[in-house]
Design a protein around this nucleic acid. Structure first.
Length: 881
RNA sequence: GGGAGUAUAGCUCAGCUGGGAGAGCGUCCGCCUGACACGCGGGAGGUCACGGGUUCGAGUCCCGUUGCGCCCACCA
């Protein structure tokens, strides 16, 4: 048997164990119809990514569930992979090229893509290796990439299919444009932040009516260059005479009409709105209703274009200043008010997005959203915690068409070809791309320059990774998957899109449960971010405290859906727990050395043995229940408490005398229990702390190959001993009482005392007699005498009164009678309070008639005990007079 | 403007279907007791935000108030 170091050192060990697991193929799941499948798809990390606390939490939760199910006998597949992360990667590669003095455009599309693939080759595996450091037991043999052949085929399959159904269309619509990234982005990628701005009130002269103006208010004066109307509410009395007339657009000096539209809020501003269809989503709609021209005044980089006349070439903000200045000079600026309003920014770069009208590709959402909404109602999909059902539904019910085209190079290119000669468009898979135009026969065909939103491919992840659109055995067996684990910030981007894609393409929800977690924040509650520099590197934590400690820290006391803060103190505590487990095991194995342990006969088990056996049995049942309900924090908390408090601080201390004693039968029983309970506890702990449990388990049981393939602990009726659990409770109370006395009386542990236990109850006397050695160990007693009454005990003793018994501790000269009386009086006060409460309840007729019978019986039982204890306390006080 | 949360010990947070107020850290006292000082034993510390209600009984359910962040939203 290996000797174990005094403190647990995870360094080096974790990597070795991981290698062993991987080499033995424990992570690999196969199609096995004799077993039930359990599947989780890993949210694919970006190839540009570095492991952060969010990944650490997300993957720890998944690993816990997978390991738990695997031990329960499921064929557990954790399907991993990485995401090409279109825009993130493209930006990273552009920047790294820039450092080498290379411009993306000089390389051309092909050249640039080569660089991207090089990047992927160099960094794409980095985060996977970091996930392995966490102990993630994903099936790496099945690792996929969103741009690998299969996933790309799935993307084109879906695109063509949806196009043919009319659910994908190309159109001139208003979209969100990022002037820095120079691409369109979807609504989900726009963050709204409240910004302090201004409200400029401007007079627009009414055409043909010298000196008459109409006042409008705007927060973006520069867009007036693209105004093609102004609008008032059709029922607004103030402006009835204006409807149908024209106003002169200042600076541009062009006549534009006054239209009436319900969109206008009479109460807001002046009740007159300038209409810029090219640069505002609402105005775009108004423009459509009134057939207004669309004048785009911005270039892709948000400078004013040639439609802006003399402002052409100016930046949007510079133009704004200039325009305001000139309006003021012309006396058309009425006033400027401070005004806070929401500004849309690009979630990736923070740039203020500019709504623009451009030809883009869209997914029509209305029909697709319907089954995804019904999924919740039908119970085919649920969120944990449930409140996220609302978040999900609300978004789906108000969904707008999804802009899927991106002006990027890295990613899935839109599979559409145009004929240069006749303008015909062909949408088909790349492998079926036409050589000549099917309409005019021209060979001048060019593929659409745009790419797809990166989420278009991740939306298919649960089934594309399993082989779809091919009907693979994996797809048949592992799909639909079971649980999806992700943060609440990803619901709109990913979860929603996976669900409607699942229904549309496979007819099923891709998973039945979405387990949501929150953010890991810093110790001040701030988001961890690069710009703040407050991020904590999980690898650094692992390096200092081990992966098990990090995992335990992330899971303990964290409720689903809630954010948590990261504290080094808590990691330390986790590390301490690992060390505790290590040392308890070390102690057991040291003593077990050379011992031939056999299963004891039931009659050879002591109360304490049956208690701890029963306790771990109950624990297994409870923990399993919590795991089934995804209450991971509660589950691990129970294992933690059991190991530290019950097993280490009580049971191990209790059996020390037997271990060091001569009674072979009793010794064997103790050994067997220690070994059995430890093995069970390790199994229950394994999903949370895989490394340390593996190391100890295989050392404790050298015949076992790995704890990963051990069976989960299940509840056994034949290991349920409620009487012994009760006995243990009583015993602990008594021992705590003795310890309290020793502290109160300043009795050093070195001074051992004889203990008397008196009880009128014969069964209790018997149990205490059998437990005498336990008391000796736990209460530093040199002898324990059990008797029926206290008559033989002198006055010079302190006592502890517990239900059914009184414990006396003769201390001869050490006793301070006043202190002892004080103690007893305190006890008396406590009991009086309890009795009053109990009597109150039991004299309440409503309680007696309405509360469940068991509760009433329980209360009566309590009262009886209190009364008995009170009698004992009073007797002691009497005795001391 | 909507929506969903949260308010429990000095700090950070658990507390599932209503009946014991808890953990970690911190703090006080005593211990290097033959696994562990990354430890052991014993304490102190809370009107469970506030006001109502339902109930025999509420931190736990309902309504309202206040504080705090969060998400969504096209008021120019």
């Amino acid at each position: 048997m290996k000797t174990l170091a005094k403190t647990y050192d995870p360094k080096g060990l974790e990597d070795l164990l991981y290698q062993k697991w991987e080499q033995n193929g424990y992570f690999h799941a196969k199609v096995d119809k004799t077993k039930k499948p359990f599947t989780i798809v890993m949210p694919p990390p970006n190839i540009t990514g570095q492991l952060h606390m969010g990944h650490a939490l997300d993957n720890t939760m998944q690993d816990i569930l997978i390991r738990f199910k695997r031990m329960q006998g499921y064929e557990a597949l954790w399907q991993p992979g990485t995401d090409h992360a279109a825009i993130s990667t493209e930006v990273k590669v552009i920047n790294s090229l820039k450092e080498q003095g290379i411009d993306k455009n000089d390389l051309g599309r092909e050249g640039f893509l080569e660089k991207c693939w090089e990047w992927r080759k160099e960094y794409g595996g980095r985060i996977i290796n970091q996930l392995k450091k966490m102990g993630s037991s994903a099936d790496w043999e099945r690792e996929r990439f969103t741009m690998d052949e299969g996933c790309s085929d799935a993307v084109e399959e879906v695109f063509v299919k949806l196009y043919e159904k009319g659910l994908i269309y190309k159109g001139e619509r208003i979209i969100n444009w990022c002037p820095v990234c120079q691409t369109s982005i979807s609504d989900a990628e726009v963050l709204h932040e409240e910004q302090e701005g201004h409200f400029w009130h401007i007079n627009y002269p009414i055409a043909g009516e010298e000196g008459r103006f109409v006042q409008i208010a705007t927060t973006r004066p520069e867009t007036m260059l693209g105004d093609t109307a102004i609008a008032v509410h059709p029922d607004d009395e103030r402006y009835q005479d204006l409807i149908g007339k024209k106003v002169i657009l200042p600076l541009v000096n062009k006549e534009i009409p006054v239209v009436a539209d319900e969109y206008v809020d009479r109460e807001f501003g002046t009740g007159v709105v300038k209409i810029t269809p090219a640069h505002d989503p609402n105005d775009f709609e108004v423009g459509r209703r009134h057939d207004l021209p669309i004048i785009n005044v911005l270039n892709d980089d948000a400078t004013i274009n040639e439609n802006g006349g003399k402002y052409c070439g100016m930046d949007r903000y510079e133009a704004r200043r200039k325009i305001v200045e000139e309006l003021d000079a012309q006396g058309l600026l009425v006033k400027v008010e401070p005004h806070s309003h929401n500004v849309g920014t690009h979630d990736r770069c923070g740039t203020t997005v500019e709504p623009m009208v451009k030809p883009q590709w869209f997914v029509a959402m209305e029909d697709l959203a319907k089954p995804a909404i019904e999924a919740i109602e039908k119970g085919e999909l649920r969120f944990v915690p449930e409140r996220f059902n609302h978040t999900y539904l609300h978004w789906l019910e108000n969904i707008r068409d999804w802009c899927i085209s991106r002006q990027l190079w890295w990613g899935h290119r839109i599979p559409a070809w145009y004929c240069d000669d006749c303008g015909e468009m062909v949408v088909t898979k790349t492998k079926d791309a036409p050589a000549v135009c099917p309409k005019c026969g021209s060979a001048h065909l060019a593929q659409d320059e745009d790419n797809l939103d990166t989420w278009f491919s991740s939306a298919l992840w649960p089934f594309s990774t399993l082989g779809w659109p091919k009907e693979t055995p994996e797809l048949d067996y592992f799909y639909p998957t079971d649980v999806l684990v992700t943060g609440y910030d990803i619901i709109f981007f990913w979860v929603v899109r996976m669900v409607f894609s699942g229904y549309e393409h496979t007819g099923k929800s891709p998973f039945h449960t979405v387990l949501i977690h929150g953010l890991v924040r810093d110790d001040q509650g701030r988001k961890m971010s690069k710009s703040l520099g407050n991020g904590i590197d999980p690898l650094d934590v692992i390096d200092r405290y081990g992966a098990d400690a990090l995992r335990l820290t992330l899971i303990t006391g964290n409720a689903p859906g809630n954010d948590m803060r990261f504290y080094w103190d808590r990691v330390e505590n986790s590390r301490n727990f690992a060390n505790k487990v290590w040392n308890a095991s070390r102690f057991i194995m040291m003593n077990l050395e050379d011992a031939q342990v056999t299963e004891p006969k039931p009659g050879d088990l002591g109360h304490e043995d049956k208690w701890i056996l029963s306790a771990v049995n109950t624990l297994a049942r409870d923990v399993t229940e919590n795991m089934d309900k995804f209450e991971l924090g509660i589950a691990v908390g129970k294992v933690y408490d059991f190991i530290w408090d019950e097993f280490c601080d009580w049971y191990i201390e209790m059996v020390k005398p037997r271990i060091y004693g001569e009674d072979a039968v009793s010794k064997n029983a103790a050994f067997w229990i220690l070994k059995t309970v430890l093995a069970d506890a390790l199994k229950l702990l394994h999903p949370f702390m895989p490394f340390i449990t593996e190391e100890i388990y295989t050392t404790l049981l050298p015949e076992e190959e790995s704890i990963m393939i051990a069976d989960w602990v299940t509840y056994r009726e034949d290991r349920h001993f409620p009487e012994d659990e009760e006995m243990a409770r009583r015993m602990k109370e008594l021992v705590r009482g003795v310890r309290q006395i020793r502290t109160d009386m300043d009795v050093p542990p070195s001074r051992k005392a004889k203990l008397f236990v008196t009880s009128e109850n014969e069964a209790v006397r018997k149990a205490f007699t059998e437990l005498a050695p336990v008391y000796q160990a736990l209460a530093s007693a040199n002898e324990v005498v059990v008797q029926a009454d206290a008559s033989m005990i002198g006055d010079s003793a302190v006592s502890v009164v517990i239900p059914d018994a009184v414990l006396y501790m003769p201390l001869e000269d050490l006793v301070d009678f006043e202190k002892e009386k004080e103690r007893l009086n305190k006890e008396k006060t406590r009991l009086e309070k309890e009795l009053a409460r109990s009597k109150g309840m039991l004299s309440n007729e409503k309680f007696l008639s309405k509360a469940p019978a068991e509760k009433v019986a329980e209360e009566k039982e309590k009262q009886k005990k209190y009364e008995q204890m009170m009698a004992d306390v009073l007797a002691r006080l009497e005795q001391m007079q």
